[in-house]
Design a protein around this nucleic acid. Structure first.
Lengths: 216, 216, 216, 216
DNA sequence: CGCTAACCGAGACGGTACGTCATGTCTTAAA
DNA sequence: TTTAAGACATGACGTACCGTCTCGGTTAGCG
């Protein structure tokens, strides 16, 4: 009476996703087989297929089931500091286990599964991008940024290089790299004399620029 | 003896890669099977495995075999115009068939095959990035950019959003989008009043900035 | 409350057997699945398993539920005519739908299900054989057959070749073939000149013989 | 180099059939699974399916592979003795392992697989029946039987009751039962006084009759 | 010019996983 | 309480590819 080998729908769902995450970390999400997940979860393949149409869909839901820390932008009034805080967190999440490998596997799948691509955008990429844009908009509304500041493009410039590093060059994604991009966006692509600058000076300059004025 | 079912070494290599490209375009590179390639090419699986250790390796060589136009930067003296010309070409290449889907498939594979990732970087991404950096360096040396301009980061900011669009949002990668990024990099993230500006005025301003001066 | 999706005990039993017969005729009794029967009958699998322990048992009861004409021997006083009448009827029943295929399927099942074999003998084969033996006994008692006539063996000789034809050679089981066997049993295996013979002559000869006297 | 895990086509065929026979005897031919055969034979399922289109076909070939004693009729000049000898042998073969259960399983399959039915008739039933008919014909030609003796029907009367017993009543098939049928055919359905009769008397009477003259 | 070694296609082979189907048991909710 | 509905673990199905391994047949290049 007390062992209850299995009980209700949701229980199975959870067990399967847990098995997916475990196996994914052990043998890699690319080599994951439905068969192995079923065995590990003590579930039948049918039960898995009842809920998820494909391995990618299972991966996706497993990713969602990871109780990720809510990545909401802080609002200290300092747009750069807030972006930094938030992007550092995002990078930490997307880089480390268990989310990192799973996330990369899903992007990989998204290249030949439009449904996964759509879901990924709707549930993962999009919301996060929206938050970034929203935080930038608030800063612009508060006059910290030029009224004409291109919010969406700024978001792309903040995100793009990170994904480039994550997916293409596959070099480690450090906080320092994030800082370089933030500095480029708001301080300029030039010699970044930020170390010497006082924080008040930095704050005054938060107007969205990649470069200092060229040496005349 | 006029039909010559097959001949010699290199011939086979070519036939196999041709079959790979054909099948990839017909059924998608993800669903491609060595079996199907062998059949289509009139080759035996053994012959394929003799030359390529994995499907990804075959895809990679097939990608290289596409006689892509050399993507070398022009040098008209105008750094922005040259970047624009070159990146437009690159985007056209990476977007359209047959390279586009194949390229995406390879990036997909690279997520779980470090060898492919390395090869992709060494033979594809890296060289192109180097050319971009080189062209930027030349512009800096010629005084068109601030001496402190961060060449590598600029490259990442130029490339990142494009890959983001290609791999993540999977929206069409247009010339217009490339132009927006270029403008952001060199003109600023602001209202881009470039339409009214004379070209000479634009040229004068090529100093690497994302934003106009904030409204004071 | 006019649709009454289902009602009470016996109703279900009937609906399930009807569905079994329908599906059996449509897709064959061998490919019949409990699942399909349940769906067709609008019943749950549990309800089926409550009543029948196996598919074969369900088939068996479905066979019994076919309102087969009672196959009782007529008694006109002419043993051969009566046997002929009765066996013709039996052959017609066992050959045509829906009983034929179902009967064969059950014999098939009986080869690896002793319970079905037993039931088949008790409820189907046995009673019919008993009737044949009884009719033969009566004829013997009336002096139409030799007192030493082996009733059981005669039954086997009458039945055996029919099952041989039904199950093994699977050639059509005709009335003519039945007649040949009857003639062999009562007239002889020889040239059967029965066509020229008067019926009275035939009757006189009903003593149970397979052959005419050999040509001396 | 001496272990040779497997080598040539035919080897596999043999191993698979051996595994089929073994498993069939252990767990029954009805419960036999291709999966189990493959495992036992150390073969892959594909290899099995390459050779046999269905489980029944595999069973059939396995049956043929049993090195059954050639069942050729002796010819001692005494038709009844020869039939007896031969049918006793046939019954022994078809009754005992490994042929018996396999044979019954195949007849079972033949009820819903016309190909098996055809093969069974062509390769198993037919040839044996032909031999019986041929032996009977020889006897007729030699004058031991009436010129008008119906050879085919005699064969059916000899075989039918045996299959009836094997498949339907499933009672043991004894030599004694065979003898009763033979006696019915050649001596008559009557009181069989064969025990007291001299063999010469019996021989004289071999004219193909089921009954003695009725008691007048 | 003929022989031999390398290479080829063909495809069999042991595997692994696929995605589907049916089994028989179980639970739930409605009637 | 009986039911329809259907989830569930199990296990087999038949198929698709994987990567390895003979097989013969054909060149090609050396002798």
């Amino acid at each position: 009476m007390t062992d209850t080998p299995h009980r209700r729908g949701a229980d199975r769902t959870e067990a399967i996703m847990r098995a997916t995450l475990e196996l994914g970390q052990e043998i890699g999400y690319a080599k994951l087989s439905m068969e192995a997940v079923a065995t590990r979860a003590g579930a039948s393949k049918q039960t898995i297929y009842r809920r998820w149409p494909s391995k990618a869909a299972l991966l996706f839901d497993s990713l969602l089931s990871v109780n990720a820390p809510a990545l909401d932008y802080p609002d200290t009034g300092d747009i750069v500091a807030d972006l930094r805080t938030q992007i550092h967190s995002a990078v930490d999440l997307l880089t480390g286990p268990p989310v990192g490998p799973l996330f990369r596997a899903l992007i990989s799948e998204a290249q030949h599964d439009p449904q996964i691509a759509a879901a990924l955008n709707e549930r993962f990429i999009g919301p996060q991008a929206d938050k970034t844009v929203a935080r930038l908009r608030k800063a612009r509304d508060e006059g910290q940024l030029s009224p004409a500041f291109d919010l969406t493009l700024a978001m792309a410039i903040l995100s793009g290089p990170l994904y480039f590093q994550l997916l293409i060059t596959q070099e480690p994604l450090t906080h320092a790299y994030v800082d370089r991009i933030l500095d480029a966006l708001f301080t300029g692509l030039g010699p970044s004399p930020r170390i010497e600058r006082s924080s008040s000076a930095r704050e005054r300059d938060h107007r969205g620029r990649l470069t200092p004025p060229a040496a005349t």
